[in-house]
């Protein structure tokens, strides 16, 4: 599919590269974002990269729509490259039990042991495809084929904050308590959105990679207490 421009009302344009979850498409989205940012166009309020598209929210009385359309189609030609700013993260997670109430069911549905599910999830280097849905909420992918399950038939009214969840080819961590229909496997002490870091309130950025690391219950509680007390900074979660 050639990149094309879609109208998201009169105040936003979407540059669409395709309709699939695909790291190659996502890399083109990020390259187009960087190329557009370099132009420093006046009248743009937000630029939102997703799996497969780049949406520009703008003031059409300040920035001519035809000009923006042309610039976006030019930016779409930028060669895909991995962002120089991408960071590798290592996120500790306590799995199962009260923290991951769906682990047993996921193991049953996939015909594997709980240990095998944990091992497969933690063996994958997951790409951050986009941040959305909630402040700091990362869409991570892709999971091994056999671990891909449909969403819960009945979503939970309240998923606890910091829950690690999976659905389809995706994994995510809920930064806030919220309704949710994904399978809950565990809990992390890591804060994915922190206003204390004004320069980067969302920990993860598209293009980053994440590897989950199993933590015992005691280690989880100790880390959570240290995060709460401000003893642990965010650099702690960068992969060494």
């Amino acid at each position: 599919m050639n990149p094309r421009i879609l109208a998201l009302g009169d105040g936003a344009l979407t540059l669409e590269f395709g309709d699939r979850i695909d790291p190659a498409l996502n890399a083109r989205v990020m390259a187009a974002r960087d190329a557009l940012a370099a132009l420093k166009l006046d009248g743009i309020s937000d630029v939102v990269p997703t799996y497969r598209s780049l949406t520009v929210h703008f003031d059409p009385l300040r920035l001519d729509r035809e000009i923006l359309t042309a610039r976006l189609l030019e930016a779409a030609q930028a060669p895909a490259k991995e962002s120089a700013l991408a960071t590798r993260w290592r996120i500790p997670v306590v799995f199962g039990g009260e923290y991951g109430p769906d682990l047993a069911e996921v193991a049953r549905a996939t015909g594997r042991s709980e240990a095998a599910v944990i091992e497969a999830l933690c063996a994958s280097e997951l790409r951050v495809f986009l941040i959305g849905f909630l402040p700091g909420f990362p869409y991570l992918g892709e999971l091994p084929e056999w671990l891909r399950l449909p969403r819960l038939a009945t979503p939970r009214a309240a998923v606890p904050a910091n829950s690690l969840a999976i659905a389809g080819a995706q994994a995510a961590v809920y930064p806030w308590q919220s309704p949710g229909g994904w399978h809950l496997l565990g809990r992390t002490p890591v804060r994915l959105f922190d206003l204390g870091d004004a320069a980067r309130p969302a920990l993860l950025a598209p293009g980053d990679t994440v590897r989950f690391a199993p933590a015992g219950r005691d280690e989880f509680l100790r880390l959570a207490a240290d995060v709460e007390a401000g003893k642990i900074g965010r650099q702690e979660w960068q992969a060494k």
């Binding site: 998201l8 105040g11 979407t14 669409e16 309709d19 939102v48 598209s53 949406t55 929210h57 986009l130």
Partner: peptide, 11 residues
Amino acid sequence: DIVSDAVTPGT
């Protein structure tokens, strides 16, 4: 269903 992309007030 679509692969998630951006929405805006008025969508």
